[in-house]
Structures are given as structure tokens and as C-alpha cells.
Amino acid sequence: MNQRSSNLLDEALGLDQAIEPWPLRGRVVAIEDRVETSGSFVLHHLLKRSLSPNSSNVSIFIAFSQPFSHYDRVLRKLGCNLVSQRDNGRFFFFDMLKLQCPVGDEGITPGGGLIALYGKIHKTISALPEISQKNVSIIIDDLSLMEVAANGSSDYVLDFLHYCRTLTSEFDCSLITLNHEDIYSIEDGSTFLLQMAYLADILIKAEPLATGLAADVHGQLTVSNKGRNKASNFHFKVKENVVECFYPGRSRD
């Protein structure tokens, strides 16, 4: 039941066949949501899949939006214990809630800011045993708050993401990011979102239905998978401890 209900999302991401080797390795996944439809459930789902007991994946979670206890509670509902995963060395949590990049000269000092964060991630991955080095997911929640921490310099965030991307080619790890689509004004040309769209191999959009709010459907997901030249679209409903995905008109209740 639990397995079946998430099938569409897994299928779209290629997670339905084998989880080992991690199907997202070497890929950049960008999740874009809106204020009416939070996309964080996709992030939780990916985290849960990457920590699944029959794989040797390691997740590095860079949190700008919530403290550890929040994710711990959410993942526990999904049937995954973050504390024990952390103790097993499969889950690394970087609490960046209070990160403030030094002002002036874009914070280019090895001591602080995003450069130091990159150094920390790199160090964590290098310290892993050879076998897990190949299956690392770097998860960032979320990019808009990272931009805030970087004093609003989206270029600095893009540079950081570029360096994270070099990790995907160096170690074959995957990079998963969450961002909000509706906070960028059209006047800016929403360049940041476009940059992310070019950067990402898989783009997941969580949007409300075009027809407005509905009780039985919370929104729709559009997954564009560049590597496989495939796009899929389906509706979802977020429940207490599971997310149901179904094709339009196929809700099971």
C-alpha cells in the first residue's frame, strides 16, 4: 500500500526499479514549489528513499529552514529514524539556520560563509568509506533562505551550487534542492529560476491545480527528466504519513 501509493513519483524519478546503485547519482534535482502547495514532501520522500534500509546511501542535509527536530518528527511519521541513521553515519545534518555570510567582498574568506560550507561538505564526503562515497545525496532546504544568508547575492548562491555540482561529477553524488517559484518577480527576469532549470537534470514542480483549490487533490506535480527526455504529470494528496500520487481523475477515495 505504502509502496504502491508513491509509485508515480518514484517511477518519474526512476526510483522504482533499483535503489542500488542510487538512480539519482550524478544528477541535480531541483524542486520548485509555490506558497499554496509546499514541495517539502518531495524532499522528505527523497530523503526517506535515500536512507532506505536496503541501500548504502548517505545523505548530507543542509538545513536553512527548519531545525533537526522538525525533520526527525516528519521522517519518523514516514517510518524512518533520523537519529539512529545519524548515529550510523548515514545521515549528516548541517544546521545552517544561523549562518550569516560575512559582509563585504562577497564573504570570500575561507573562514566563513558558503565557501566554508562547501569545504565542510567536501570533507564529509572524502572522509566516507570508498563504497558510500559513490552514493551520496546532498539535500538543500531551501535555496531562497540560503540567498538570505548570503545577503541576497544570488550569484554567490549560484557559485556555491556550481561547486556542489562539481561534487556530482567528482564523486557521482546527487544534489537535491528546494526552491520557491513565486518569490521571484517577473521584472528580474527570474534569472535564478532559469539558471536552476538549466542546472537541473530533473525538475520537479509542485503547483496548485489550474482550476483552483480542491478538497481531494492538493496539487499537481510535473516532473521533467532531461536525461530520459521524459515528462510526467500527476496529482497528489498529502496525507498524515503518506503522499498519494495518482493520474488526474484516478483518486482512489
Partner: peptide, 21 residues
């Protein structure tokens, strides 16, 4: 110009926080 465009890795190596691949 992909792997280290801004010299971050260089800086980190200098400060001893980094091991070059």
C-alpha cells in the same frame, strides 16, 4: 573552468581544510 572557477578549492587547500582529489 568547471572544477575550480573561483579558486575556492585552492583557498581551502591553503587553509588546510581540504584534500585535493
Amino acid at each position: 573552468c568547471y572544477n575550480d572557477p573561483l579558486g575556492w578549492k585552492d583557498q581551502l587547500v591553503e587553509s588546510g581544510n581540504f584534500r585535493a582529489p
